[in-house]
């Protein structure tokens, strides 16, 4: 048998994606606004901030190129060092931030009476602004505040929750935890809903008691959720505690509740050192970038779970 070969035009290679050229052009057009927003509010400020961090400009715009002097200064700045130590202390409490909502979510999921009520109550603080939360707790936690009154009623001496450098950071962390753990509960609840009943029943048949089912089956199944909550919480506490610090402690006493985020505002807004503030911002950005990278790695590792 002979095969006749015809000369044909090679099939035109299709460009990536689907749809006609016109459709593709339209798609790019629709993406443009979002792209513009990211560029204007994220990318350009970032680049601008980086150049700013290499100068010693003031808010009036006068200043010189100083190279990496701001970074060198940050390395030797005791306030910045304190803020980093405070950050480390804050991050050390991470297990509580993750375990508490997980435990509560599991209890609600197990069908504790009034579970829906608890869920709503736990979530409620998440809709309050940090300024309102700060205002509430400055009343509750001040030396002659309601918490100390309550303690006094049961014979415990008043504690200076916000005014002593040994308690202030702990109080701050506790307030932030109170105001945000409801979100964690919700995330864990939705995660628990994805653990099939069959698996838990199989574990019962295999002889696992309540605690074994919890720690050998349910919690490992929640691992991706645990890691997600850990990462989201970490980023949250590093970038969204400003309002609370501002209202509750102002970063004090001393530097005991100063976090890098608050310090940036201090340097920029109060001390008129935008260049230095930009340098600290860049350091914080790199820290956050590292965490985001970890997040991406963790999530891709969990894809086959």
């Amino acid at each position: 048998m002979t095969v006749k070969t015809h000369k044909t035009k090679p099939p035109r290679k299709r460009r990536g994606g689907f749809g006609s050229k016109q459709e593709q052009r339209f798609a790019y057009l629709m993406l443009l606004p979002a792209l513009a927003l990211v560029l204007i509010f994220r990318v350009i400020p970032l680049i601008w901030g980086f150049f700013l961090s290499l100068t010693n400009v003031d808010t009036l715009g006068n200043g010189d190129w100083v190279g990496f002097a701001n970074y060198a200064r940050a390395a030797n700045d005791p306030t910045f060092q304190d803020s980093l130590i405070n950050t480390v202390i804050l991050l050390a409490t991470l297990p509580i931030w993750v375990m508490l909502p997980m435990l509560l979510a599991i209890l609600i999921h197990q069908g504790v009476p009034g579970g829906k009520f608890y869920r709503a109550v736990y979530f409620f603080p998440a809709v309050l602004s940090s300024v309102i939360i700060g205002a509430i707790f400055s009343v509750v936690l001040r030396y002659d505040g309601s918490l100390n009154n309550m303690l006094g009623a049961v014979g415990i001496d008043a504690i200076d929750w916000l005014g002593s450098s040994s308690n202030a950071l702990g109080s701050l962390i506790a307030v932030q935890l109170w105001s945000t753990f409801g979100m964690g509960v919700l995330i864990f609840m939705s995660g628990l809903a994805t653990v099939p009943d069959d698996i838990i029943e199989a574990a019962r048949i295999d002889g696992a008691g309540f605690w074994q089912r919890l720690f050998l089956v349910i919690v490992p199944s929640l691992r991706p959720i645990i890691e997600f909550v850990a990462v989201v919480t970490t980023i949250g506490v590093l970038t969204s505690m400003f309002g609370l610090i501002y209202v509750l402690t102002g970063g004090g006493p001393g530097t005991s509740t100063t976090l890098p985020e608050f310090l940036i505002w201090l340097e920029q807004g109060k001390l008129n050192r935008p260049g230095y503030a930009a340098a600290i911002s860049m350091i914080l950005f790199v820290m956050m970038g590292g965490i985001a990278w970890m997040q991406v790695r963790i999530m891709s590792r969990n894809t086959n779970l």
């Binding site: 069959d198 019962r204 048949i205 295999d206 002889g207 089956v217 490992p220 199944s221």
Partner: peptide, 18 residues
């Protein structure tokens, strides 16, 4: 269930994913 000394195979397999 465990004390009954039975074993069960589920429609959805119910294997522990981790």
């Amino acid at each position: 269930p465990f004390d009954r000394e039975i074993a069960m195979v589920f429609q959805s397999y119910a294997l522990y994913p981790h």
